[in-house]
Design a protein around this nucleic acid. Structure first.
Lengths: 351, 351
DNA sequence: CAATTAATGCTCCGAGTGAGCATAACCCAA
DNA sequence: TTGGGTTATGCTCACTCGGAGCATTAATTG
């Protein structure tokens, strides 16, 4: 499922070719593959964006996507790599399937002639150095789409100024509660997702937060998809990150959540790093992904004692201070530990 | 994505209905949904099996599966629940998407008239008490399909007697190695998956192990799908668990791995438990899922101090010894902790 | 040369966890 | 009725890991 460097070739994911069951009553649908292609450049997590023909009510940014044709490509993976290479010139390394969304066709009527499309979201990680080779598309910080997820400079103020009041308003629109918490269903969900009043912020719940905001009409896509319902006024929507075409922002949210989770138990950070790096560069990359800032000395101890890296023997001088030892990813760790990763805690950082 | 009791309604996963992009060059395929419906009865993890018309070379066991028709059902989830209810009478609670496999159609030739089928695997958890209501199908221990995964009575002997020698033989069929470990690629993968000679057994790598065995021709399905390649002799295949139709055993492997991982950071065990239970019953259920046996006193301390359960005040007398306090799942934990689960260690248990 | 900025080494402390010991309270069979 | 078997439950102790901070080293810059 991936060819990245940080993952051992545990399996080739060799193709299974088994007899097909008969699925008689299913209507045929088409398969679209969407890729969230992620890199970190200048300590900023970026994602590859395409923005041709803005046919979708204002949102011109989208993830690269392409069709999957089972006749042409044996597996979904291969199909993905193929059109990504064609479209962008990028040869993907690490690739991971995220989720299959089938709810594109809700508005389908009996007389709807458009084919039904099912979208399979993928996550791909690339090194910043390969970034130049992207022919089409350009890179954008993923926090432009999710400003409330950027905790690197402390708690994002948009949470106070916009999200908390708006969601509170939304939650209070319902009054029934049938749960053991004596809170409305909506209030609970808001608290769980955003950790208001005493709850904890779980940086992995990116998708849950986005879907909640969508449901509350606080992101542009909600307005686009359901103009009949009340959405937040435009001046608020404008502050809630850039919208994307189709359901691409949802897929990107899934991708961010997945990377944030995975970085803790698989050495996927190294997919984003050059072959040699200082420990501080590594830390910056982890922070770009996760958000909060980490304790420097403890981070060193963590990655070194976990055996994730080994010194190359070289030094890097232009650090701005004392020269730093260069390190490289230590592949052997995959043979030693069942789940090697940067096991950093979910930092509360409520400043 | 689920309606189970242990998960907070973080989001309704309200339907997104966005405009469909044009996917012109894709061939239409049909969507099949497969469900691994899991319960624990009498301390045994069981999965719902259907076994009508054994049209598939010997393997008569299969997972329940049904088509997805976007015209009928808004989301994949809803479609799944619908036909599961029709087929088996079960109303699913907790449901989770696993993976989408697209490599059904490799043997497709230009003149192949069968439609291409893509299979989306799902995991569902049910309580043992609801088991009677399954009209069709019957329940089978999942370890019948994966005997090497059952570590509850110590290291399964099939690892010594069959798997290790056969995989060693298979690994030695190649000699090239171009990696920093001085081992062949195959040798590394075998060691990583099965933890031979000093490696650790990671109970979550269920899928990786199955796929490796498939590739090595050590499971019946390999023989079925690729009769042209050499597989292990029948007397060995017979000991390697029951084969299943299509790629259902692969989906079940994915499901087992997912439950084993998820149980540690989400309170999904309680989906498998009755409303009230003793701590030992809870422990037995966790062990049924994970394999190795846990330290009883520490397990108590773990679940109690994590706030996962609360005493009901009742006692259960027929325990075989001293009466035990009854507990129930403490839902409030979801509001308190970001990732509540039975955080048991991967026990090495190499006896 | 002094100030600034990083890199790196080391310590201290407290929470969490693995492993046992010990006791309590039921059932059953002799 | 009593003792053995079995399970429940309380508690201790040692050890590890992770969070936080102090101190020192070594480059750059003005």
């Amino acid at each position: 499922m991936n060819r990245g460097l940080a993952h051992m070739p545990v399996t080739n994911h060799e193709t299974f070719h088994v007899p097909s069951p008969r699925v008689d009553t299913a209507a045929a649908v088409e398969i679209g593959l969407n890729a969230a292609i992620v890199a970190v450049q200048h300590d900023e997590p970026v994602v590859l964006i395409v923005r041709d023909n803005p046919d979708d009510g204002g949102a011109s940014d989208g993830l690269p996507f392409g069709p999957f044709s089972p006749l042409e490509h044996r597996t979904l993976d291969i199909g993905l790599r193929s059109w990504v290479s064609d479209q962008t010139g990028l040869e993907l390394g690490y690739v991971e399937q995220l989720y299959t969304f089938g709810d594109r066709g809700r508005h389908a009527e009996a007389n709807d002639t458009r084919p039904h499309v099912m979208s399979i979201g993928y996550l791909a990680l690339t090194q910043a150095s390969e970034i130049e080779s992207a022919d089409e598309g350009h890179w954008r910080s993923w926090y432009q789409f999710f400003p409330w997820e950027d905790w690197r400079k402390g708690r994002p103020e948009i949470l106070e100024t916009v999200i908390e009041p708006e969601l509170t308003k939304w939650a209070n629109q319902t009054s029934f509660h049938q749960n053991p918490f004596r809170l409305t269903d909506r209030t609970q969900r808001v608290r769980l997702c955003f950790g208001f009043d005493g709850g904890t912020w779980d940086e992995e719940k990116v998708l849950e937060r986005y879907e909640l905001l969508y449901e509350a009409g606080l992101v542009g896509e909600a307005n686009r998809d359901r103009p009949e319902r009340a959405s937040a006024p435009t001046n608020i929507l404008r502050r809630m990150g850039l919208p994307m075409r189709y359901d691409h922002r949802r897929i990107l949210a899934t991708a961010i959540g997945r990377v944030r989770a995975k970085i803790k138990y698989r050495p996927v950070v190294f997919e984003l790093m050059p072959p040699e790096f200082t420990l501080f560069e590594l830390q910056k990359t982890v922070e770009a992904i996760l958000g909060p800032h980490l304790h420097k000395q403890n981070f060193r101890r963590l990655v070194e004692s976990a055996g994730l890296v080994e010194p190359t023997g070289e030094m890097k001088t232009r650090t701005g201070g004392r020269p730093a030892k260069l390190f490289r990813f230590r592949r052997e760790v995959l043979l030693e530990r069942p789940a090697p990763g940067v096991r950093v805690k979910a930092v509360v950082a409520r400043n």
